[in-house]
Amino acid sequence: MSDMHGKPQLALVENSASAEAAAQASAVQIRNFSAYYGKNCIISDVSLDLPEKGVTCLLGPSGTGKSTLLRWINRINEETENASFSGNINVLGLDVLEGYPDVTELRRRTGMVFQQPCVFPCSIYDNMLMGLRNRKLSKSEARAIIEQSLKSAAIWDEIAHRLEDPATSLSLGQQQRLCIARALVLKPSILLLDEPTASIDPVSSRAIEDLVISLGEDIAVVMVTHNIAQTKRISDHVIFLCDGKIVEQGTRKHMFSMRSCEKTRTYITEEFCDC
């Protein structure tokens, strides 16, 4: 188990050559991972691989540890009091603890967007600049990156003429796409999305879904959701979690077919899990 600052007290995976090779094949490799808040075990002994490209949905009922798992991938859960974990997470071939002594580097390589749109109380442009602050870029270079990211997030056309406006003046859906664009500025290899459509209207939600699908063609997108229809629309891979454990994982085709396990089928058809 590790403390809230992420210092490992128990390493369950040895750094063998085969483990390293496997880690390099997938964007994220999680082994024997358990997460705790105080003494409460939220995730129990989970092992999984997240592919380098494509959209992977972490599906399951509320309170099953999907967000907690996601938040440990870039160690943002360290910010939560009493949070600790045991096990091993490899991100882009490096152990999140040993390979990234400077956690900011890990976070720059793994963009993250949260459930609630959270824009900073400054202009749209300054919001976008936040992620670029440690790069020595000229104004024109920074502007080009920002424009590219806003275009990738499918929001450029809507806000190009008002980049100096306060970001808070945008609608919730636009704010969320701005948050995605802000994460894309970092050119991350992995994008972590924690229910990004949960608090926005269906039209904006669909725009984000299209965006996620297109992003999945180039990078690894890991998205937490409990929206089954959404999972069906956008996912390439699905991991079904219940009660802190992986019930089943596989391709979308497999998970939404009659070949999936009974628990998965029950959840998908009845949105209910009796774990």
Partner: peptide, 26 residues
Amino acid sequence: PQRYRENAKSLGMYRHEVFKDIIFPQ
């Protein structure tokens, strides 16, 4: 709100940058 800290840190900002650019102005 804590979410500002988390959002800023998830962008790879250092703690002092988060304070100076996000927390203090608010």
